[in-house]
């Protein structure tokens, strides 16, 4: 399947879904006007992905709006489905040191899905 490599903009995140090199990362800011349209190809990609090795999905967002939080949960749910098929999946959630709200957001997402979740300060 084709890799996804999106450059970040002032209101959309940088996204790498690279099955060739086993890199999965979302970073930057996420506040697009139309979240559903922006995240649709990402969610479709994750729904179709059948990994052959361990997946470490890295989330390094500085900021996301509430509509994006819904899309983040949808991505995590797709990853949970991959895990439930017997694949090894972990999420690493990064937050800037001192950013209490992003730290808390990571903890909240970790409570909403059944996937090993690591929360680390940058």
């Amino acid at each position: 399947m084709n890799n996804i490599n999106l450059e970040g903009t002032e209101d959309t995140p940088k996204i790498i879904l690279d099955a060739t090199n086993n890199i999965f990362e979302i970073s930057g800011r996420s506040l697009p006007e139309d979240c559903a349209t922006f995240y649709k190809p990402i969610l479709e990609w994750l729904a179709a992905y059948e990994p052959t090795q361990k997946v470490n999905f890295e989330i390094k967002l500085d900021y996301f709006n509430t509509a994006s939080s819904k899309m983040i949960l949808d991505m995590l749910t797709r990853l949970e489905k991959i895990k439930n098929k017997g694949k090894e999946v972990i999420i690493t959630w990064y937050y800037s040191e001192d950013d209490e709200d992003m730290h808390e957001a990571g903890e909240e997402f970790s409570e909403l899905v059944e996937i090993p979740f690591e929360i680390k300060s940058l």
């Binding site: 006007e33 139309d34 979240c35 559903a36 509430t66 509509a67 939080s69 819904k70 949960l73 909240e108 409570e111 909403l112």
Partner: peptide, 18 residues
């Protein structure tokens, strides 16, 4: 917040009710 996040769908206007 967590309940609304888990149980809502994005509206046709793109809002999550959050």
């Amino acid at each position: 917040y967590k309940n609304t996040l888990s149980n809502s769908e994005l509206s046709d206007k793109g809002g999550a009710g959050l």
